[in-house]
Design a protein around this nucleic acid. Structure first.
Lengths: 250, 250
DNA sequence: AGAATAGTGTCTTTCAGACACTATCAT
DNA sequence: ATGATAGTGTCTGAAAGACACTATTCT
């Protein structure tokens, strides 16, 4: 916009333009590590490789709207579940040759959900598979993200990604790490009520490091985001932990 | 991409698609505050309002490439200057009605430059004007950005923005604040060599707060990003300060 | 000498890391 | 009682804020 020569282009079809899609990093936690939902491509190009679920952006929907639609159409979320999922724009990828068929620019989104919703989405659509992400801790640089099928216990054969989706995943993990301790992203990966131990596990899974227990508890409780529910977890064979609920800053 | 029904769309013109642009927040510092370069719109819509420089994204250029082209074509940067300017993707705005003429999605970029380059760009193109940004310090929320013409010393009449460009500016300021103390963004607003006082002024201008001098110096020097040049600033009527140069982390 | 800022020494407070300790629950 | 984890008290060290002080340059 703000183009002087714009008026000449008033006919929307006058100029060739890139196609626009959204691609979603559907992220949850499995086995104490970040995990994503992927689709195995059946057609060319990149047949047999793993891709993020996505869709074209319609003329009459916002980017967030298109991302929400993918959540419902491709991950089997009900409108209520989709509204409860934390959806955040990540970055826009526009390399000229990122798709060999034609010029496609994609707006990547990060969708965070608790483990239960992650598993439900996985089961809702046979095309979806879950992959565990293994991210080397190399400080702040992009780093290479490796993904392994949930069944691949030995982490023997890493999955290969379609298009630039490995890059998108690397950006997703980095963003998550960066926002972890000043925002409330971690709570989007937890159920409604949770223990402090679970919260610490989430942080550790995202950071890929272990954290000091007393310091972590102090920091979390001092922040004022946690409201004790008064009840305790059940089903343990040891002392059950207090359950907390996330509540906005006052 | 990753659309099953994709093959049906193999004809690039088959589906109506949003137009795609880049818009640039050309940012420098003036009078100890953040300032941006804006273009006053002459045509409808939003004639008389102030807009960010931007352009459509060509089929054969990347997003970063299109942003660099705007830098050269609209801000009069030479290729060398453009390459030296720090250009960073900010966020992608896709509200359906953000442009009344047609559906346009825009990828916003933040371009940071030292004061000299900022003034040179301002003078290179008569259509460009500089505006001082006044951002209320309301913690982390979006907040309203007000802009005033460089000549408007009393800050009497705020400029009104075209399209959603006020929102884009708010995101830009917030991003800058967020990255200020873990990244090297501040150095992009300073000349090659600079004093610690100038560095502190940049931080204060972006944050909108004043900072503790000894603590600031300690933090900056301990980070290891500053290399003393051995020479001192000139032209002062008092003790001249040591000049430093930014150098990457080892 | 005086003015003005550069640059530092040090005290205090705050907070993270570490470790050990106590508390509580199921079996 | 035992085992296992929840949860806390406290020491230590690192780093920020505050304040006052010294240092250096120009006029």
């Amino acid at each position: 916009m703000t183009e002087e020569a714009f008026l000449e282009a008033y006919d929307p079809a006058a100029f060739a333009r890139p196609a626009l899609t959204v691609d979603l990093v559907l992220m949850g936690l499995r086995e104490g590590r970040p995990a994503v939902l992927l689709i195995e491509r059946k057609e060319h190009p990149h047949a047999g490789r793993w891709a993020l679920p996505g869709s074209f952006v319609g003329l009459d929907e916002t980017l967030d709207g298109a991302a929400g639609r993918v959540l419902r159409e491709k991950a089997g979320f009900s409108p209520v579940e989709a509204a409860r999922t934390r959806l955040e724009q990540l970055y826009t990828f526009g390399a000229v040759d990122r798709d060999p068929r034609m010029r496609i620019v994609t707006v990547a989104y990060l969708a965070l959900m608790p483990e239960a919703a992650f598993m439900k989405a996985l089961e809702s659509d046979a095309r979806l598979s879950a992959a565990i992400l293994v991210v080397p801790w190399d400080g702040t640089t992009g780093g290479i993200v490796e993904a392994f099928s949930l069944g691949d216990r030995d982490r023997a054969t890493p999955l290969s990604f379609a298009f630039d989706h490995a890059e998108i995943l690397a950006v997703a993990i980095l963003r998550l790490r960066g926002k972890l301790d000043y925002s409330d992203v971690a709570f989007a990966l937890l159920p409604e009520v949770f223990t402090l131990r679970q919260l610490q596990d989430v942080h550790q899974a995202i950071l890929g490091t272990s954290l000091n227990k007393p310091a972590f508890r102090r920091r979390m409780l001092d922040r004022g985001w946690l409201a004790p529910t008064g009840s305790r977890e059940g089903g343990t064979s040891f002392r059950p932990a207090e359950l907390y609920r996330f509540q906005e800053m006052p």
